[in-house]
Design a protein around this nucleic acid. Structure first.
Length: 933
RNA sequence: GCCGGGUUGGCGGAAUGGUAGACGCGACGGUCUCAAAAACCGUUGUCCGCGAGGGCGUGCGGGUUCGAGUCCCGCACCCGGCACCA
């Protein structure tokens, strides 16, 4: 750029000018505390009157990655900032800030590689992320930001853990209660009796052990393929002593309260499926050969009991050893024996093989396998002896770990029965072919061949048959109606270093004790080596050895817990990544409170239940759909525990949830399959409309997906700041499309947003002189109408988070003003105000140049004047047979008759009617006339 | 396999059952300029036509309706979740 050019356009809204004014306004916001939201009480209470109307706005907790941000990351942050700024202009007290979910594996892996303490690396990453985000001009209350690794935050995470540890779930009351009340109720303080009731408990239970990572994983962290979500290593089922969270106690409330929150339906559905409540019955089948042995099964189809022809126990089922026999009964089908000499041997081999399999291997082979135990059980409804098998298609963790098999009415049982030559008697008629229909039949129908001396289900539809047989079973003491859940308790131990230590010590009997409150937080000791011991990925027999196990001085501790000083041993595990994010919504409210995790007055003010949100909670929570079950379920669970214990007044953490889409990007590979720099690829559109791409003259293939360094398609916010400024970047991201949709990034299109802001700038500021052009002229009618229609439309779009169409309307207004050279304040000021949520720096600057000396942040958002929303004339479309044949300019209040007359007078309409008889005229005054011939 | 979501110009996307393609990118033409860039103005679904105008057009096939991108039925493809859950 020559110097002559620079002087000519020295007051043009360029990237340099934007950078300059953005920096100035950011400094002023910080200096004036513009976005600091006052609390009712505590250190963040304000001086003035507390606004009545509040808006609590949250982004999902980011992990401070070392890689830095790309342009996709800020999408949600910009959107919430737009919402927050708009709500402030609507007079609400807006709480919006951002903290960091800073424990996690990447920092630990970095520490293992470099020897640098994960805290140092994490803090550096946070600082870098803060810097990148600061340039965006987000209206955050910085006083409320924190990181989960801050000792003050860890203290409260541990405190909440102890609250859960010191609680039990009272099924009758339907809520958690302090464990002290259980001791009173049961009249004992024997830990062997009390501890199994705790909501946080240690148990020897089957867990997902991942030798390659050296840690156990929660069910949620294991993929459908039975591998670790992180690293994709094999995962094995092992019985280990681990911390569990009794989330299953909350299954009903977690499920039912989904109806009371404002969440996207797909997310609710995912949670419903994950919790997986199903109603059915537990039924006891006696095993006569073994004294007092009875197999309890769970079934959702007790109405098919008469069709049960065999039973299956999961390989891990505890009754297997008790019932397995020494010799095959006479005439045992060879398919049932797996070629073994005896049931004992066959079962042992089968169980051994099953234990060696990962879940993926169990699932890969959908062919049914299993062996006969040699034992028979008695079907309680008809006294028939049915063989008992062990098979891995029955899972130990669901229901009772045992099933009655009804091959005629269950696909899996049918497959097994077919493979093992078992009978498949029909007990439900149904399907197109009724009595003769294909098996298995799992749909609706009517019970048949289902009666004994005391009860008959014959002729009853499924639901009634279920109720009848459950009634009979309960009467006979052979079973009961029950509900089961797919949801399991939450495995809460990780064999890692970089997480919250458990505030627990174990006595010599192995009983856990809470670390006294005044000793919190329990901080991580320094260790020589940050990694857990890892093993060969398929080493099934390996045992967890966490890094904290090597901190011997820290591990052994002498404490006085009430009965004199004693030696205790700390827990060598740490909490999983999800701990901090399960309650951080509460700490933003009162981040520095040293007495309580949040003052009740502050919690009630921001999150308490109201008419509009009965459950209470955050007003708007924005983040990716990938957290649909994990984080959102855990956070709801903890929040409900805290609610039960009286620490919070809200029943749900997040009242309204919004899933943003992602910004994706194209990547290009050359002939060798190597990624080439995406920003150097040239696009060609052929004569046939086909698009091709070349790099360095050679054709390349395009793929669509994430942005990533290895894909050579990363575009960073810093590049956008340099080339266009933060406001242009913000406007572009918000105008790309609806917030909940994913879309491809296109750097080349960003200029459109810059041109828009330049036009707005030019309306207010003379590019040559830098003088303000605004005058006090009155607006002409047309402009008034465009202006107020825009205000009206933008307001509606803002409420619906339709920022792309809101911006489109602002562009239309701007183009109207530009075309008519309108420079009246009466139009410019509302435009600047409406633009303020999207381009806050530019808006502040123009607002200030228009002669105002306060920030635009709290200036009321423009209101439409209804008298200007009515147009002088509207376009009336005239259709013949539903096809548009003419358009009329008519008064908005034109009558049906007038419209019909005008329509029929149109030459083109007459031509379309072509002399045919007009049978009917449909008029939707004043917009439409449709003539039917 | 089951459950969700989607499919509209060259591209991103707009459209309470009532003018399909707002707004933006790109492309083309113009103004300004010695020239170029920037900016500004105009054109831009497609086919036929000098034009007036007309035909076709929202993944595919049916249906409801005066009228369907929108509602209903069936199908294809893409994305996401779950997946032997009794």
């Amino acid at each position: 750029m020559s110097s002559a050019d620079r002087t000519e356009t020295s007051h043009r809204y360029t990237a340099a000018l934007a950078a300059d004014l953005e920096a100035r306004w950011q400094e002023r916001w910080a200096a004036e505390g513009t976005f600091e939201a006052p609390n009712p009480v505590g250190d963040l209470a304000g001086d003035g009157e507390l606004p009545e109307s509040t808006y609590y706005l949250m982004d999902m907790f980011p992990y401070p990655s070392g890689a830095g941000l790309h342009v996709g990351h800020p999408l949600g942050y910009i959107a919430t900032d737009v919402v927050g700024r708009h709500q402030r202009m609507r007079g609400r007290n807006v709480l919006h800030t951002l903290g960091y979910d800073a424990f996690g594996l990447p920092a630990e892996l970095h520490a293992i590689q470099t020897g640098e303490h994960p805290r140092a690396n994490t803090l550096a990453n946070i600082a870098n992320m803060r810097r990148q985000l600061r340039r965006l001009g987000l209206g955050h209350d910085q006083r409320r930001s924190f990181a989960t690794i801050d000792p003050e935050f860890v203290r409260w995470t541990q405190w909440i853990f102890l609250q859960i540890f010191e609680s039990w779930y009272d099924e009758e009351a339907g809520r958690a209660r302090p464990i002290s009340e259980l001791r009173e109720k049961l009249g004992t303080d024997d830990p062997a009796v009390i501890d199994p009731y705790r909501l946080a408990y240690v148990s020897e239970s089957p867990v997902n052990w991942c030798p390659a990572l050296g840690t156990v994983l929660s069910n949620e962290e294991v993929t459908a393929e039975g591998r670790s979500e992180r690293g994709n290593f094999p995962v094995f089922q092992r019985n280990l002593r681990q911390w569990q969270m009794r989330i299953t106690a909350y299954a009903d409330r977690l499920l039912d309260d989904l109806d009371r929150v404002d969440w996207p339906e797909p997310v609710k559905l995912m949670q419903r499926n994950w919790i997986g409540r199903s109603h059915g019955a537990e039924v006891d089948f006696d095993v006569p050969a073994v004294e007092n042995a009875s197999i309890r099964v769970f079934t959702t189809r007790p109405d098919t009991l008469f069709g049960a022809t065999y039973m299956v126990l999961a390989p891990e089922h505890e009754l297997v050893d008790a019932i397995v026999t020494d010799a095959w009964p006479d005439g045992t089908d060879p398919r049932w024996t797996a070629g073994a000499a005896s049931p004992t041997e066959a079962v042992a081999d089968y169980r051994h093989a099953a234990a060696r399999k990962t879940d993926v291997e169990r699932q890969e082979n959908k062919d049914k396998t299993g062996v006969f135990t040699g034992a028979f059980a008695v079907n309680p409804v008809n006294g028939e002896q049915v063989p008992v098998f062990v098979a891995d298609y029955v899972l130990v963790g669901y229901g009772t770990g045992a099933i009655m098999a009804v091959p005629a009415h269950d696909e899996r049982d049918f497959e097994f029965a077919t493979a093992f030559g078992l009978p498949t008697p029909r007990v439900v008629t149904g399907g197109s072919a009724g009595e003769e229909g294909e098996l298995p039949w799992t749909g609706e129908g009517v019970a048949t061949a289902s009666s004994n001396d005391e009860v008959s289900l014959d002729g009853l539809p499924v639901a009634e048959a279920k109720a009848r047989i459950i009634e009979w079973l309960e009467q006979k003491g052979r079973g009961t109606g029950t509900t089961t859940y797919r949801l399991r308790d939450w495995l809460f131990s990780r064999q890692r270093y970089w997480g919250e230590p458990f505030p627990i010590v174990f006595d010599e009997d192995g009983h856990p004790h809470a670390v006294p409150d005044h000793l919190l937080p329990v901080e991580l000791p320094d260790v020589p080596d940050y990694s857990p011991r890892t093993f060969e990925p398929d080493d099934v027999t390996s045992e967890p050895e966490p890094p904290l196990g090597r901190a011997h001085d820290w591990l052994e501790v002498e404490l006085d817990l009430g009965d004199g000083p004693r030696r205790y041993r700390r827990d060598t595990n740490t909490m999983p990544n999800w701990a901090g994010s399960s309650w951080y919504q509460l700490r933003y409210l009162d981040p520095h409170n040293a007495e309580v995790l949040v003052d009740p007055a502050n919690e009630a003010y921001w999150m308490g239940p109201t008419e509009a949100k009965r459950t209470g909670g955050v007003d708007l929570y924005v983040g990716g759909v990938e957290h649909a079950v994990l984080h959102l379920l855990y956070a709801r669970f903890w929040h409900k525990v805290l609610f039960d214990l009286g620490h919070v007044s809200s029943e749900e953490p997040f009242h309204r949830l919004f899933n943003q889409g992602y910004i994706q990007a194209y990547a290009y590979t050359d002939a060798r399959g190597t990624y080439v720099p995406a920003d150097e690829v040239v696009e060609h559109v052929g004569d046939d409309g086909a698009t091709t791409y070349t790099y360095d003259g050679a054709p390349v293939a395009r793929e669509y997906g994430k942005m990533g360094k290895s894909l050579k398609n990363v575009v960073t916010p810093d590049e956008m700041y340099d080339e266009y400024g933060a406001d242009t970047f913000r406007v572009y991201e918000m105008s790309m499309g609806p917030l909940d949709q994913s879309r491809p990034w296109e750097t080349r299109a960003v200029v459109g947003s810059q041109r828009f802001l330049q036009r707005v700038w030019r309306l207010v500021v003379d590019e040559e002189s830098g003088k303000v052009r605004a005058d006090d002229a009155e607006l002409d009618r047309a402009t008034l109408q465009v202006l107020h229609r825009t205000i009206d439309g933008v307001s509606a779009d803002m409420d619906g988070l339709r920022f792309n169409t809101a911006i489109a309307k602002l562009i239309e207004l701007t183009n109207h003003l530009t075309k008519g050279s309108v420079t009246s304040r009466a139009a410019l000021e509302p435009l600047v105000l409406m633009l303020a949520p999207f381009a806050p720096h530019l808006a502040e600057e123009l607002w200030s140049r228009l002669g105002h000396d306060t920030t635009v942040t709290y200036v009321p958002f423009p209101q439409p004047d209804p008298s200007h929303l009515v147009a002088d004339t509207v376009t009336c479309v005239v259709q013949v047979q539903g096809k548009v044949r003419a358009k009329l300019d008519v008064a908005p209040d034109a009558s049906d008759e007038v419209l019909t007359e005008l329509a029929l007078a149109e030459e083109n309409v007459q031509r379309a009617i072509d002399g045919r008889e007009v049978r009917k005229v449909i008029v939707r005054a004043p917009k439409l006339v449709n003539i039917v011939v």
